[in-house]
């Protein structure tokens, strides 16, 4: 019990620290938010210009959910890299905290930040377009958001290992991984139009199932029970990626300490 409160407090230390960082970098946050809104609008305007209500919804859902999932992935995946840039990595790794508490803190903040950021973008899109949500099943959307969050936390943790192991290339690898996820997950189109090998890859992206489920829920009013084919891969990914990611993170830490990869200067 004492251990658990200790871990939770450590997690909260990360949440609070990241919140302070957001506050201090507020200019960048605003700039980024504007960029996100502009990006979301430009994509969804394609649907609007074609006068296709269905396409408009497909694109809105794609931008909104990808924006959220990408933030969760990026914030966790780059958490080690941020500390490399700031130069604090050794201090965080020297502290008597357990890695799952650290990563949980990173994940918690990623989810909070991602939600707020995305809700803002959503608000703008709703103000801009008349969205036809008469059929929408919101419970389905919420369920898939939660499932997607957990599985993206998992792949985020797995990705965060890269900057730990590769001082120079790690962050670039995370970025490439995120780009591939964007490409194969059917964010703006159906994965069925992709070439076979990309469709093969798309099976391994949790975003594929999240977007499919949310679209079925919000456009066709499908319930979670109708969408079990999308639910179970997400559940399995969450159950596999989180423990596997934590385990691999521990291994990567030991590798970094053996080879001197935590160091910055001095």
């Amino acid at each position: 019990m004492a251990m658990l409160t200790r871990d939770l407090r450590a997690s909260m230390a990360f949440v609070e620290r990241n919140f302070n960082l957001t506050k201090r970098y507020w200019g960048w946050e605003v700039a980024w938010l504007i960029y996100s809104v502009a990006g979301a609008l430009s994509v969804t305007l394609i649907g609007h210009s074609l006068g296709d209500e269905q396409l408009l919804l497909v694109l809105v859902i794609g931008t909104i959910f990808w924006s959220y999932l990408a933030i969760v992935f990026e914030f966790i995946g780059e958490s080690v890299q941020w500390e490399r840039w700031e130069g604090t990595l050794e201090y965080t790794f020297m502290a008597p905290i357990r890695r799952h508490a650290q990563l949980l803190g990173a994940a918690l903040y990623a989810v909070i930040f991602g939600m707020i950021h995305t809700l803002f973008v959503l608000a703008v899109l709703v103000a801009f377009f008349e969205l036809d949500l008469s059929q929408a099943n919101f419970a389905t959307a919420i369920a898939f958001t939660l499932l997607g969050t957990v599985s993206f936390i998992g792949i985020g943790i797995a990705a965060s290992i890269l900057p730990l192991m590769y001082v120079e290339r790690g962050a670039q690898m995370v970025f490439v991984l995120q780009s591939v996820l964007l490409l194969v997950s059917g964010v703006y189109y159906s994965v069925e139009i992709l070439p076979g090998w990309m469709q093969f890859l798309s099976q391994f992206s949790p975003a594929t199932y999240v977007l499919d489920g949310v679209r079925a829920g919000l456009i066709e009013g499908a319930s979670v029970g109708d969408l079990l084919d999308d639910v179970w891969p997400l559940l399995i990914m969450a159950l596999v990626f989180i423990p596997a990611g934590l385990w691999a993170f521990g291994r990567a830490e030991r590798y970094a300490k053996r080879t001197g990869k935590l160091k910055r200067v001095g």
Binding site: R9, A10, E16, R17, L21, Y25, E86, E90
Partner: peptide, 18 residues
């Protein structure tokens, strides 16, 4: 080695909590 944009207080509070 600090979060340079954070204040000393914020940096120290973070460290203390860990």
């Amino acid at each position: 080695a600090f979060f340079k944009k954070l204040s000393p207080f914020e940096n120290l509070a973070y460290a203390a909590k860990l």
